[in-house]
C-alpha cells in the first residue's frame, strides 16, 4: 500500500503507534502496583488481551518504520558539516534513533525481568532502570509533541503550546517512574 511507502504515511504510522505506546506509559504509571498511590484500572480480560495485541503491533510497526526512516535520513545527509550550530532542535530530537533503540532494549529487559526469575543485584537493576527511563524520557521529550505536528494538528498558535506540553508530560512521566524506581531501591536497601 502506498501509504506505507510515503514519507508522510510512514511518519503518521510512527506518530500514531508512538502515541499509543506513550498512552500506555501514562496508564502504566498511574496504575503501577509499585506506585504508592495506585489508581485501580478496570480489569477486563478481553480488553487486556486486545491492548496487549495493539501494543505489540504498535511496537513492531514503530520500530520497523523508525529504523527504515532513520536509515533513509542518514543516507540523505551523507556528509556532515565541519561546523554546525543547532538552531532550534535539541539533543533529544537529534538522537531519537539512539534513544529509540535503547528504549526498545529496555522494554525487552523490563518484560524479561518481570517474567523471568529475578537476577542481579539492586544496584545493577536500578542503574539499568535509570538508564532505560532516561532513554524513554528523551524519546518522549521530542515524540509526544511531534505527534501533533505529524498528524497535521498544529498551527502557529498551538506549536509552542504543544511543544511545552509534550516536554512537560515527558518530564512528569520521567519523574514519576524514577520516583518508583528509587523508592523500591531504597526500600530494598533498607530491608
Amino acid at each position: 500500500m502506498r501509504f506505507f511507502r510515503d514519507t508522510v504515511g510512514r511518519k503518521i504510522v510512527i506518530a500514531v503507534t508512538g502515541q499509543i505506546m506513550a498512552g500506555f506509559v501514562i496508564l502504566h504509571l498511574i496504575g503501577n502496583p509499585l506506585n504508592p498511590y495506585p489508581v485501580k484500572l478496570p480489569d477486563i480480560g478481553f480488553l487486556k488481551q486486545l491492548s496487549r495485541v495493539i501494543l505489540l503491533l504498535s511496537f513492531i510497526f514503530h520500530a520497523l518504520f523508525g529504523v527504515q526512516v532513520a536509515v533513509e535520513n542518514r543516507a540523505a545527509k551523507p556528509q556532515t558539516y565541519v561546523v554546525k550550530k543547532r538552531l532550534r532542535t535539541n539533543f533529544a530530537a537529534e538522537n531519537m534513533r539512539w534513544s529509540g533503540v535503547l528504549t526498545a532494549a529496555f522494554i525487552i529487559y523490563h518484560l524479561l525481568w518481570f517474567s523471568l526469575p529475578k537476577a542481579g543485584s539492586g544496584y545493577a537493576v536500578t542503574a539499568v532502570y535509570s538508564g532505560g527511563l532516561t532513554a524513554l524520557f528523551l524519546h518522549l521529550y521530542h515524540g509526544i509533541a511531534s505527534f501533533f505536528q505529524t498528524i497535521g494538528c498544529n498551527s502557529e498558535r498551538t506549536i509552542p503550546v504543544v511543544e511545552r506540553a509534550g516536554k512537560g508530560t515527558a518530564v512528569i512521566l520521567f519523574a514519576g517512574y524514577i520516583f518508583i524506581v528509587l523508592l523500591s531501591f531504597i526500600q530494598e536497601t533498607l530491608r
Binding site: R10, N73, A75, E94, H142, S146
Partner: peptide, 14 residues
C-alpha cells in the same frame, strides 16, 4: 521528494 534522495521530516524545525 523521497525519490530525489531527500530525507524524511523529523519535526526538528531547524
Amino acid at each position: 521528494m523521497l525519490n530525489e534522495g531527500f530525507g524524511n521530516c523529523g519535526n526538528h524545525y531547524e
